[in-house]
Computed example of a mutant assay.
Amino acid sequence: MYKYTVIFILAIIFFCYFSFAYSKYYNGNVSDHFDGSRFFDSDLNNEKNFFDFLKWRVTEKSSPWPDKVPNNQFDLPPARVMGSDLRVSYVGHVTFLIQTQGLNILTDPVWSERASPVSFAGPKRVIDPGINFEHLPPIDIVWVSHNHYDHLDLATINLLWQKHKPRIITPLGNDTIIKASNSEIEVEAYDWGDQVIINDYVKFHIEPMQHWSARGLFDRNKALWAALNIETNSGNIYFVGDSGYGNGRYFKKAREKFGSFRLALLPMGAYEPRWFMQYAHMNPEDMVRAYIDLGRPFTVPSHYDVFKLTDEPRGEALIKLEKAKKFLSVGDKIRNLEPGQFWLVPSIANAE
Results as ranks from 00 to 15, higher is better:
residue 38 R to N: 13
residue 206 I to L: 13
residue 110 V to R: 02
residue 30 V to M: 12
residue 263 L to Y: 09
residue 320 K to I: 06
residue 199 N to Q: 06
residue 206 I to F: 09
residue 280 A to D: 03
residue 4 Y to F: 01
residue 153 D to P: 04
residue 19 S to A: 13
residue 205 H to L: 10
residue 130 G to W: 08
residue 10 L to Q: 05
residue 53 F to C: 12
residue 140 D to E: 04
residue 133 F to H: 05
residue 107 T to H: 01
residue 81 V to W: 08
residue 126 V to H: 06
residue 91 V to A: 05
residue 308 K to Y: 01
residue 319 I to S: 11
residue 8 F to R: 10
residue 203 K to L: 08
residue 124 K to Y: 00
residue 73 Q to W: 02
residue 315 G to W: 14
residue 256 E to P: 00
residue 218 F to Q: 02
residue 322 E to V: 07
residue 159 L to H: 09
residue 145 S to V: 00
residue 310 T to F: 13
residue 216 G to A: 12
residue 216 G to H: 09
residue 163 K to H: 11
residue 287 M to N: 12
residue 339 P to W: 09
residue 224 L to F: 08
residue 92 G to C: 09
residue 246 G to I: 02
residue 188 E to C: 07
residue 71 N to V: 12
residue 271 Y to T: 01
residue 60 E to F: 02
residue 266 L to E: 03
residue 125 R to L: 06
residue 132 N to P: 00
residue 232 T to G: 00
residue 230 I to M: 05
residue 64 P to I: 07
residue 23 S to I: 02
residue 282 M to G: 06
residue 83 G to V: 09
residue 106 L to M: 08
residue 312 E to V: 12
residue 75 D to G: 10
residue 39 F to T: 02
residue 25 Y to G: 05
residue 11 A to H: 03
residue 161 W to T: 09
residue 171 P to A: 03
residue 324 A to I: 05
residue 315 G to T: 12
residue 289 R to K: 15
residue 187 V to K: 13
residue 234 S to I: 00
residue 283 N to I: 08
residue 242 D to G: 01
residue 186 E to Y: 12
residue 118 V to F: 01
residue 37 S to W: 05
residue 167 R to S: 10
residue 144 V to A: 01
residue 267 P to H: 09
residue 108 D to F: 00
residue 316 E to T: 13
residue 36 G to M: 08
residue 167 R to D: 08
residue 217 L to S: 05
residue 67 D to P: 00
residue 262 R to Y: 03
residue 71 N to E: 12
residue 11 A to N: 11
residue 339 P to D: 05
residue 192 W to E: 13
residue 285 E to K: 14
residue 126 V to G: 03
residue 117 P to D: 06
residue 247 N to C: 06
residue 86 L to E: 03
residue 88 V to C: 15
residue 209 M to I: 11
residue 137 P to Q: 09
residue 96 F to R: 07
residue 242 D to L: 03
residue 53 F to D: 13
residue 217 L to Q: 04
residue 66 P to C: 05
residue 10 L to K: 04
residue 159 L to C: 03
residue 3 K to V: 07
residue 148 H to I: 04
residue 2 Y to G: 00
residue 229 N to M: 12
residue 311 D to T: 11
residue 160 L to P: 04
residue 280 A to Q: 02
residue 31 S to Y: 05
residue 277 M to R: 10
residue 42 S to I: 12
residue 269 G to Q: 02
residue 103 L to A: 05
residue 162 Q to F: 03
residue 264 A to H: 07
residue 207 E to W: 11
residue 14 F to T: 09
residue 341 Q to N: 14
residue 351 A to H: 12
residue 300 V to W: 06
residue 31 S to D: 05
residue 137 P to N: 08
residue 215 R to E: 13
residue 53 F to G: 15
residue 47 E to Q: 14
residue 258 F to H: 14
residue 319 I to D: 11
residue 58 V to D: 01
residue 268 M to I: 07
residue 117 P to L: 05
residue 243 S to G: 07
residue 7 I to L: 09
residue 66 P to T: 08
residue 257 K to S: 14
residue 334 I to C: 04
residue 16 C to D: 14
residue 344 L to I: 10
residue 291 Y to F: 15
residue 209 M to W: 01
residue 233 N to H: 01
residue 107 T to I: 01
residue 268 M to K: 02
